[in-house]
């Protein structure tokens, strides 16, 4: 007899077929979709920690997302209920985006994923985001943390301009700003006037925990 624990293990172990098979069995046994969603969320936390520990990388994160989509499709098809696999986002909101002039999004997407599995609501503005759009999103969603990403050196100045836009809007002391991406480091943090630089997605989560935890 399949259990929710089995499902959690299969999802966390990136076993796609097994996860979908177990979902069907659990649904057939009358397990509530909400409980299945709960097991999936727990599994995603495991995926997140395995990523932090250097066991999982991009392929595993991508597959975990695919498996979740498959499970929610199954719930819809088999018991005709919508399953909200979205993160609970109870810990607070982070606005994130790749800065103006840069269209690279892989690093930013990993950070968004990791923040979500760690309980944050992520407002992802996408790529080539103008400074004012970061400011507007923070106002609209009452976010306390902003994450800016870039891959290219031409994005340093837009990053700096975005920090300045928060200044001009009178919001600089209301938000914490972190930067990341392959072209960034502590020197660029200083150059842009951001509050912190994160080496990787794990660092972004630690920063959010420090800041939102402290502010809550």
């Amino acid at each position: 007899m399949a259990t929710l624990e089995d499902l959690k293990k299969a999802v966390a172990g990136i076993e796609e077929e097994e996860s979908l098979k177990l979902t069907s069995e659990l649904l057939a046994a009358g397990i509530a979709p909400l409980e299945i969603v709960g097991a999936c969320r727990e599994a995603m936390e495991v995926v997140g920690s395995r990523f932090e520990e250097g066991e999982y990388f991009l392929p595993e994160l991508m597959m975990a997302g695919e498996i979740l989509t498959g499970i929610s499709d199954k719930i819809r098809d088999e018991v005709e209920e919508e399953a909200d696999m979205g993160a609970k986002g109870e810990l607070g909101t982070v606005v994130i985006g790749t800065v103006e002039g840069d269209i690279h999004d892989i690093g930013k997407d990993i950070v968004a994923f990791m923040l979500e599995v760690n309980g944050y609501k992520v407002v992802d503005l996408g790529v080539d985001v103008a400074p004012d759009d970061f400011v507007k999103a923070v106002q609209e969603h009452d976010a306390k943390v902003v994450g800016m990403s870039c891959l290219l050196t031409v994005a340093y100045d837009p990053m700096k301009a975005t920090v300045e836009a928060f200044d001009k809007a009178g919001l600089r002391d209301k938000v914490k700003i972190m930067i990341g991406g392959a072209a960034t480091d502590e020197q660029i943090r200083e150059y842009t006037g951001a509050d912190a630089w994160g080496k990787d997605a794990t660092a972004a989560v630690s920063l959010a925990q420090k800041w939102i935890g402290g502010a809550a």
């Binding site: 050196t153 340093y156 480091d185 020197q187 660029i188 150059y191």
Partner: peptide, 13 residues
């Protein structure tokens, strides 16, 4: 030599 340093560093760096 990091490209970040080429932009945000000094000649001494």
């Amino acid at each position: 030599v990091p490209v970040s340093m080429m932009k945000a560093g000094t000649p001494a760096d």
